[in-house]
Design a protein around this nucleic acid. Structure first.
Lengths: 343, 343
DNA sequence: TTGTATGCGTTATCAA
DNA sequence: TTGATAACGCATACAA
């Protein structure tokens, strides 16, 4: 109980004042060695020893108050809590952002807003100066949090490409439309003609763009009845969507699932109904997440550089924080198709 | 740009001082209506109007400084970042904790510590008064963060049942040993005799206890060579562990996988090697996560009430925060076996 | 019921 | 190079 751990387990924590007293100098001098500034060698030595002795650890609230910053950036996810967990994509983006942020010595604070109550609490949190900036994922234009962030003029970045949405806030993402088009084309190239899509989250820009890309690739072959819309990117929705499609069109020979998790669910449904992949039906996904190599056969899919998206998003916030004006209105990262065996 | 959003987009935010000026009262009176205290009806009305007018939002740093609290609780995960995403169990616990915390108007702050650098930054974060309490997941006794938390006397709770680890910090979890024993027994009851285990994370209490339970159930039938140890609870490790086991013992007729994700990987390997489940080999898992119903056949497993664990953990921190002394040294939640078709 | 004054722990601006 | 001293925005004990 008494041996280890640098900070002494006393009720009150040591302050700059205590260091000053212990070292026999003024608080100003202590502050100068803590930050950077002219201080004599002898004074510095005495103070550094005192710091260790009293087990000093800075009080961030006090520092924030005077510095007007928190050294933290919010990672705001506007999705149900459960999806936040299920979606490997959001996870990857989060990891990338966290790595970049922590390299710059910023703490990432994870904020999932799902309910009215969340909105209120997180509004308070953002307004309270707990974060210096924000990375916003899955924004829709009506989200009240967006208004708050805009009103606060909080240095921010959108992940994704929401249109008509605070043009002064930059974005980073991929070209969902072009990539969806490209992967659908390859489905055509392997001879499929009755091609369906399991479209998810069409109320969001990513979902809508993937559907649009699919339609553009198919051109006159596009058949609205071969699009099964499901609410979210997940396994269960994929299985359900696939069953719907099979029911509507027994002759189906190709399927574009809007995400790998959706594709995995679809393949499960396909196996149950006795269809072989890729012989009977070709399947392609989107994301190149760990789902893609968890299915048999492995999924052909679009690689979404989640990690890069996250780190670029973090960089854009960091740059605003530094005062560097950011030139681009937005940033689209490459998302190449990766071919495996499912189509 | 100018229409919506309560806080006016001015550079400086309104303070209590501004409210006082606008309402023609002193700061003290304003503070009293903000918190609670005696204040005349007329003054209150004027102040409340002024608050809306100036678009006041409290400065949390200042409030924290004077109140010596942050109204936030850290959710500390001592695991690699990637596992934090993959492990559905941690996710469920997080969700449960978040729900309880936000119901009590606390902000949950997610802290994953994976590297040296993380440790330093998060130590600073915790010590800086950013959180009033902590929920600690996956602790091992040597983790330096534990020392910090202990040294700070930060109201905390362990998720899991780490022994020899700060006995003054309560824990909440399940009885991994008993449940592992129980589910292994049922494997025996269905006639299996050459039973192996894919043991994961044996350096942690949960992993070690599950292995111990397995051994206790088997008694004299226990064969050390039929235990394949893998580093973490995940799909890929499950497949690899299964292949190892099959190689060591072609006559294997039962397998206990230390987690559902591990079991799913194992079943994938089994399918590839042409073994039928449950006819040739019975498989049981642990967690009752979404993996359990994603496999064919569905997994028999142990239900781990992740949500409840999370909310109970949050409650224990909240109680300490309120000053209620917490009586129990720890809390073990029921974790019943759920039988499906894989064994 | 209200106003005033003081302190929370830092940093920053001055003189010295 | 250093030591006072004034902010930062809020809560609160005390005086009025």
């Amino acid at each position: 109980m008494s041996a280890p751990g640098p900070p002494a387990r006393t009720g009150k924590r040591a302050t700059v004042h205590d260091i000053a007293a212990a070292a026999g100098v003024s608080r100003g001098t202590v502050s100068r060695v803590l930050n950077g500034g002219y201080v004599s060698v002898t004074a510095r030595a005495a103070i550094e020893r005192a710091i260790r002795e009293v087990g000093y650890v800075p009080n961030t609230a006090a520092r924030n108050l005077v510095m007007q910053r928190s050294q933290a950036v919010g990672f705001i996810v506007l999705e149900p809590h459960t999806l936040f967990l299920e979606d490997p994509n959001i996870g990857g983006i989060m990891l990338g952002a966290n790595a970049a942020l922590s390299a710059a010595d910023y703490q990432m604070v994870n904020l999932v807003v799902d309910s009215e109550r969340d909105t209120a609490r997180i509004t308070r949190y953002l307004s309270g100066g707990f974060v210096d900036g924000a990375i916003i994922v899955s924004a829709r234009s009506h989200d009240p949090i967006i208004q708050v962030v805009g009103g606060l003029a909080l240095p921010s970045v959108f992940v994704g490409h929401p249109r008509d949405l605070h043009p002064e806030i930059p974005y980073v993402g991929i070209d969902n439309l072009a990539s969806a088009e490209e992967i659908t084309r390859r489905l055509l190239a392997t001879g499929r003609r009755r091609i369906g899509m399991i479209a998810a989250a069409v109320d969001r820009d990513s979902g809508a763009d993937r559907l649009a890309g699919f339609q553009r690739a198919l051109g006159p072959l596009f058949d609205e009845s071969l699009v099964a819309e499901v609410p979210v990117y997940d396994f269960a929705c994929g299985a359900k969507g696939m069953r719907t499609l099979l029911e509507r069109e027994p002759e189906l020979d190709g399927v574009f699932a809007a995400a790998d998790s959706v594709a995995a669910g679809a393949m499960e449904a396909l196996r149950e109904s006795g269809h072989r992949v890729p012989q009977d039906i070709g399947v392609v996904g989107f994301d190149n997440s760990s789902w893609a190599t968890r299915t048999r056969p492995h999924l052909s899919t679009v690689h979404q550089p989640a990690d890069d998206i996250g780190s670029h998003a973090a960089d854009m916030v960091l740059r605003q924080l530094r005062g560097d004006p950011i030139a681009e209105r937005g940033l689209l990262l490459p998302s190449p198709v990766v071919w495996r065996d499912s189509a």
